[in-house]
C-alpha cells in the first residue's frame, strides 16, 4: 500500500492522522471536502494510478463522506480491477452511520479521536 488520500476538513485531524501514518511511509494527498475527494479519485483512475486507500471523514462541506463512499463504489463497478480500500474516520458513533457505511462497502470504521492501536490493527487487517 502506497498511495493514500485523506479526506478531512479539520487540519488538526489531518495532522494527527499523518503522524499516526508516518511509520507506513505512504504517499499522502489531502483534500478538505467530498467534491474534491471525488475529483482527485476520478483523476487518479484516469491516470491508471488509483488510490489504494482513502481515509474518509463523514461530516464535510459540499458532499458528505457517505455520498462520496457510495459514489466511489458506483464508479468502481465500471472500472475493472479498481478496488480502493476506504476507512471512515469520524466522530459519529451512532448505529445508523456505521451501518450505512458498511452497507456502502467501507472497509473499516474509526471513531475519533483515532487511537494508534486501532489504526494499526485496521491497517494490518486490510493490507
Amino acid at each position: 500500500m502506497n498511495k493514500v488520500l485523506i479526506v478531512e476538513d479539520s487540519e488538526l485531524s489531518v495532522d494527527i492522522l499523518k503522524i499516526l501514518l508516518e511509520k507506513y511511509g505512504l504517499e499522502i494527498d489531502v483534500v478538505e471536502n467530498g467534491e474534491l475527494a471525488l475529483d482527485y479519485y476520478k483523476n487518479s483512475l484516469h491516470k491508471s494510478d488509483p488510490y489504494e486507500l482513502i481515509f474518509l471523514d463523514i461530516m464535510m462541506p459540499k458532499k458528505d463522506g457517505q455520498e462520496v463512499l457510495e459514489e466511489i463504489r458506483r464508479i468502481e463497478k465500471t472500472y475493472k480491477n479498481a478496488k480502493t480500500k476506504i476507512i471512515m474516520t469520524t466522530s459519529l458513533d451512532n448505529f445508523d452511520n456505521v451501518y450505512k457505511s458498511f452497507k456502502n462497502k467501507c472497509d473499516g470504521y474509526l471513531i475519533k479521536p483515532i487511537l494508534k492501536e486501532k489504526l494499526d490493527l485496521l491497517m494490518k487487517s486490510i493490507t
Partner: peptide, 9 residues
Amino acid sequence: MIITIKNTV
C-alpha cells in the same frame, strides 16, 4: 458495535 455491524452486513 462496529464489528457486529460489519458482521451483520
